[in-house]
Amino acid sequence: MIQNLVDGVLVGSILSLGAIGLTMAMHMLRFANFSHAELLSIGAYAALVFDGLFGAIHPALPEAIPPLSLTWSLTLALLLSMALTGLSAVAVDKLVFKRVRAKGGELSMVFASFGVAMIIRNILGLIFGLNPKLYSQDIVFAIVVSRDPFLLIKPDQVFTLVAALLIMFILHLVLSRTTFGYSLRAVAENPTLAQVSGINLNRMIVLIWLIGGGLAAAAGVFYGLTNQINPVLGRDLVLPIFAATIVGGIGSIYGAVLGGFLVGLASNLALVILPSGYSPAVPFLIILAVLILRPHGLFGEERT
């Protein structure tokens, strides 16, 4: 039970990072982006490649930072991957979504995003193979925190949670203290008024993709660090991340953070009563529950 709680918080932090970008893009561009979770995969694989490159450049970089399995080179690779994934998100928007948008098909965007997801997911599979990969072959043993109740935690998991919370805290500071953050919130609330207040919407769309892609990359790397990297990572996470945005209310960044943790916790606690095979269905149950109890989520506003 306590193990499920701890695991749930950990998975929740990863889902939150993914859901922040999704909820922003979904609110602003008004479509359910089924390719968002593929950005996590891009981020995870990009970091894998950069990690290898850094390792080849300097012998000290592949050293693990005790007690983690995380290496210095992977830390650098994470930052580079966040930038690259942000840029890929902008590129996908330029190549596909922007053009479909220009043709006026709000609903066609959803189709397009499915197509994009298929392309990204399977190209990653073709490049990196269908077998799972790991950032480190070193085995780092989990630490037994307590024997009764039994609780195992890996140092990497603690790092992931702290790093995810740190990233979210930085985002919070940006949103609540900087005029750039005000602009982001302004655009989310009322795009037309934001525009007449001098905000360039097209530039904001680019920035939202950059931020969303960067956060997704971090989520993907953290997922890879605590589980494994595989090409269907996006397929497995797309529904939980959507559930997080719906729980929080589409468009609410803080809602997405809370939603991520709630979905992570609920999915792991459900394993106490359900066999683990059923876990992919849990996010759907959460979505149903939210739609019945509070259709616009915890912080969402009615918007048709």
């Binding site: 005029t179 750039f180 005000y182 602009s183 919130r185 302004a186 609330e189 008024l193 207040s197 001098g198």
Partner: peptide
């Protein structure tokens, strides 16, 4: 209507238009 940003504080509304 909807001519202010409801989710921002009054000060943030002004800082937003004064950001440049």
């Amino acid at each position: 209507s909807d001519n202010i940003f409801r989710s921002l504080t009054i000060r943030q509304n002004l800082d937003l238009v004064l950001r440049n």
